[in-house]
Every structure is written in structure tokens, then in C-alpha cells.
Amino acid sequence: MNIKNIPAKIYKKVFRVSELDKVVPAKDQRMLKKLDRYQPATFSFLKKSFTVVDADTFLGSYHEIFIDEIYNFESHTPSPLIIDCGANIGLATIYFKLKYPNAQIIAFEPDPNIYAALSANVRSFGFKDVNCENKAVSDVDAMLDFWLEGGHSGKVVAHTANHTSSQVKAVRLKTILQEHEKIEFLKIDIEGHETALIPDLAEELNRVEFLFLEYHSFMDGEQTLDTILAHLKRAGFRYYIQQAYPKKFPFINREIFYDMDFMCNIFCYRV
């Protein structure tokens, strides 16, 4: 169950607080639960100073990454190259470096406020070989309009979108992949922009051993899951699909949140 955008009062019913006791002191847990949405804070996480921009998305992401371990994979090398697209405040980056201390990581995060937290957290943990980039990944090198949602759902938007946006620098991910012979793990969680991204870099996916892709479907747009899966298949991947936010009555309750009607995690690997 993806809970990264559920209101706090609902979240507290499904989150097992005892699991957080191992990594966040009780006083800091109490502080986090009192915070309003999008209120930044710094506290102790895994005995390191840690900065968040939104407590709700931190709690949901912690559960997803450190408890469910959705990014868990067995590397073929002790020093894998990992590219993290949509790094947010760095929880996935921290998870990867704790699992593979010699990993080389490139972490992309376009929101400048969230990027500041990402950079601070990477410095706090003292990680080496982590390159944080304040950029979006795209199918073009350009300045793009980006909705600064403030938590976990910022995204590239069209000029006509009903969101307050700011321009961010985007880099063509295809070019990044071409610079490396082998990428052990590629994580793409970019809130819908994967529809433009995947067709552009499809020919370079043969360089990737493991791919995690979060697919987002928006109610006012065409669903493109079939196209994306076709590209993944042609790239030689096997895939496993996991629904990210189940709906009990999908014929009735169409919207999940933020104009999305479907989300799923796609785990891609080679045999």
C-alpha cells in the first residue's frame, strides 16, 4: 500500500510506530506527528542529523523503503552504479549506501528546497561517491515547468496545468546512460514524466541490470502503461507489476489523488 500522500490522521492507523522506534528517538517521533503538512524539520534518524520537508511523506517513504524494502536487489558487484531519478530527500540513496557502502550513486532531484534537504542528508551521513544533481531527468536538455508540490509529488507540468510552477533544469537521461557501460540499478519515480522519458531512452536500457519504475496514470490524459511495457520487453526485461494504491471500488472511486487514477510499481530484471 502506497501511503505517501495519505493525510496524517489516516496514516497513523496503518503505520506500525514500533518500527520507527529503532531509528528515530521517541521525542522526535512526537515532534513529527505534530507537524503540519510541508513543514520542514531536522531530527535524529539512524543517529544522524536528518532534514525533512514534509513529515507525512517521510513516514510513508521510510516504511516503503526501509520496512517493505521495495528497492532491495542483489548486486553483481560490490560497487554498483545506481542512478536515482526522483531522489527526494535521500531515503532511497541512504538505503542503497547502507546496503552497498561502495556504491556510486547519481541522485537527481529538481525541487530546489527538497534538493537542499537531500544534499544536507547525504553530507550528514558522510557518504562518498554520491553525486547529487539539482535537475530533472527528461527526454530533452531544457528548462521545464515543474510543480513544486513540496512533498513527494512534484512533477513536470504543461504550461496550461492548474498548478503553480517554477522552471527547473532538465537533462536528457538517455545521454547520462550513454556515459556508462553498465548501470546496476536505475530508479525512476518522476510522477508521470516517465511517459515521455522511457520511449526516448529505450535503446539504452540494455545497459541497465535492474530497473524500478513507478508508473502514474492521470485522469485527463491517455494511459500509456502498454507502451511502456512494450519498451521494457524489447529491452530484454522481465517485469513484475505491483499496484501502488489499491482502490476498493474502482468503478466508483476513480481518483486516487492529484488527478491520478492509477499508480503501479514496475520491477524489471534480467534472467
Rank of each mutant, 00 (worst) to 15 (best):
F66L: 00
Y71E: 03
L98V: 09
I106P: 10
K99C: 07
L91E: 09
A120Y: 09
L98K: 15
I105C: 11
H63F: 11
T57M: 10
G126I: 00
N88E: 05
P101A: 01
K99E: 14
L91Y: 02
I89W: 03
A103E: 01
C85T: 06
Q39V: 09
E74A: 14
S124P: 07
N113A: 10
T93D: 06
I83G: 10
P80D: 03
A103L: 00
N121K: 04
N113K: 11
Y95V: 00
H63A: 14
L46K: 15
I65D: 07
N102Q: 13
A117D: 06
F50A: 05
D68I: 04
V53R: 15
A117I: 02
I106F: 13
V122R: 12
Y38H: 15
P101C: 02
S61N: 04
Q39F: 09
Q104R: 15
E74V: 13
T93W: 00
D111G: 10
F73V: 01
F45K: 03
I67S: 10
D111A: 14
I105V: 15
F96I: 01
F66Y: 06
S79D: 15
A116T: 12
G90E: 06
L81K: 08
V52T: 14
I89V: 07
N88L: 00
E74I: 09
K99W: 03
S44D: 13
L118M: 08
N72C: 10
P40D: 04
H63E: 15
S119F: 11
K97R: 05
S124C: 11
K47G: 07
L91R: 02
K97A: 05
L118D: 12
F73D: 06
F73C: 04
E69R: 14
F43M: 03
L98R: 15
I105A: 06
A92P: 04
